[in-house]
C-alpha cells in the first residue's frame, strides 16, 4: 500500500508512522511511476526548461492545499502532489505548446543576436 492514515493516540497526539520507527531503510520509491515522475521533473529542470524553484513552488502549493483542508486528511501520497506540480509547471512554461522554444534554441538565438562569439 502507498497510502497512510493520520492516526491519533489516546492523548490526542498524532501517531508516528510505523515505518519511521520500524524500518528506516524503506525503498526510496514504492512504485516505478514515482521514480519516472521524479526523474522527469529533475531532468526538465536540469536542462533549464524551468527552474527548480518554479517546480518546488507548485509542489508546495499542492501540499499546502491538501494540508489546509478542514478535516484530517485520510490518505497521503507524496507523488500525487509531485505529478500535479509537474503537470502545472509544464503547462505554465508551455513545454507542450506549439512553437515552444527550448533553452538550447533560446541560447542560440541570444548568441546570434548579440554576437557573443
Amino acid at each position: 500500500m502507498t497510502t497512510s492514515e493520520v492516526q491519533y493516540d489516546e492523548s490526542g497526539k498524532v501517531r508516528l508512522h510505523d515505518s519511521c520507527v520500524t524500518d528506516a531503510n524503506q525503498p526510496v520509491f514504492q512504485e516505478d511511476w514515482q521514480r519516472r515522475a521524479f526523474g522527469l521533473a529533475v531532468a526538465l529542470s536540469e536542462f533549464d526548461h524551468y527552474s527548480w524553484d518554479d517546480f518546488q513552488g507548485e509542489l508546495i502549493r499542492s501540499i499546502d492545499t491538501w494540508e489546509e483542508k478542514d478535516e484530517a486528511p485520510s490518505s497521503w501520497e507524496y507523488y500525487d502532489h509531485w505529478v500535479a506540480a509537474l503537470e502545472r509547471v509544464v503547462d505554465e512554461h508551455g513545454l507542450l505548446a506549439d512553437g515552444y522554444v527550448g533553452p538550447r534554441e533560446r541560447d542560440h538565438d541570444d548568441d546570434h543576436d548579440h554576437d557573443h562569439h
Partner: peptide, 22 residues
Amino acid sequence: RESASAAKVQALEALLIEKGVI
C-alpha cells in the same frame, strides 16, 4: 488513483518526447 498518476506520468513523458523537448 494509483493507476491514474502512473498513466499521467507515462503520457506526459511520451508527449515531451514526441514534441522533441526530451
